[in-house]
Amino acid sequence: MTIQILHNPRCSTSRNVLAMIREAGLEPEIIEYLKHPPTREELVSILMAMDASPRDILRTKEPLTKELGLLDPARSDRELVDAMLENPILIERPIVITRKGARLCRPAERLSEVL
């Protein structure tokens, strides 16, 4: 099974999900999205696989989110995606992508939905 994880090694939930994947006997492609952010096409594709909107993966507790006014419900999906592409720290993690779909694995137990 091909499996990818948008990962931040500094995040305990992201580290836990990576460990759970490995405990399942799989070795994922690890994408450190802060170093290698997704392209617009990749991010939109992930959102489509999740059946989610950009707001669903926005890190609401990240100070930059408030600073940029991204919590305003009037902000469009395009504006949120633009902000995430410019500032990948705004993307919630970890996101796991498999042939079964993509999930924001927060809480980590959501991993089972795509394994």
Rank of each mutant, 00 (worst) to 15 (best):
Thr2Val: 12
Thr2Cys: 09
Thr2His: 14
Ile3Met: 06
His7Lys: 12
Asn8Arg: 05
Asn8His: 10
Pro9Ala: 13
Pro9Glu: 12
Arg10Phe: 09
Cys11Thr: 11
Cys11Lys: 13
Ser12Ala: 15
Thr13Phe: 03
Asn16Ala: 15
Val17Cys: 10
Leu18Val: 03
Met20Pro: 05
Met20Val: 10
Arg22Ala: 03
Ala24Ser: 14
Ala24Cys: 10
Ala24Ile: 09
Ala24His: 14
Gly25Pro: 02
Leu26Trp: 09
Glu27Met: 12
Pro28Trp: 12
Pro28Glu: 11
Pro28Asn: 09
Pro28Ser: 11
Glu29Gly: 08
Ile30Ala: 12
Glu32Ile: 04
Lys35Ser: 09
Lys35Asp: 13
His36Ala: 14
His36Thr: 15
Pro37Tyr: 09
Pro37Glu: 10
Pro38Met: 08
Arg40Pro: 04
Glu41Trp: 08
Leu43Gly: 01
Val44Pro: 00
Ile46Gly: 05
Leu47Phe: 10
Leu47Gly: 08
Ala49Pro: 03
Asp51Trp: 07
Asp51His: 15
Asp51Arg: 14
Leu58Cys: 08
Arg59Tyr: 07
Thr60Phe: 11
Glu62Gln: 10
Glu62Met: 10
Pro63Ile: 10
Leu64Trp: 02
Leu64Ala: 03
Thr65Asp: 05
Lys66Ser: 14
Glu67Arg: 11
Glu67Pro: 03
Leu68Trp: 04
Leu71Asp: 00
Asp72Cys: 04
Pro73His: 15
Pro73Asp: 15
Ala74Thr: 14
Ser76Gln: 04
Asp77Ile: 02
Asp77Lys: 01
Arg78Tyr: 12
Leu80Pro: 00
Leu80Thr: 03
Leu80Gly: 05
Val81Pro: 03
Ala83Ile: 00
Met84Asp: 05
Met84Thr: 01
Asn87Asp: 06
Asn87Ala: 08
Asn87Phe: 12
Pro88Asn: 07
Ile89Asp: 10
Ile91Lys: 00
Ile91Trp: 01
Glu92Asp: 11
Pro94Phe: 09
Ile95Asp: 06
Ile95Arg: 04
Thr98Cys: 06
Thr98Arg: 04
Thr98Gln: 05
Gly101Val: 02
Gly101Leu: 04
Leu104Ala: 03
Leu104Asn: 04
Pro107Thr: 07
Glu109Asn: 06
Glu109Trp: 02
Glu109Ala: 14
Leu111His: 14
Leu111Asn: 11
Ser112Gly: 04
Ser112Asn: 08
Ser112Lys: 12
Val114His: 02
Leu115Trp: 06
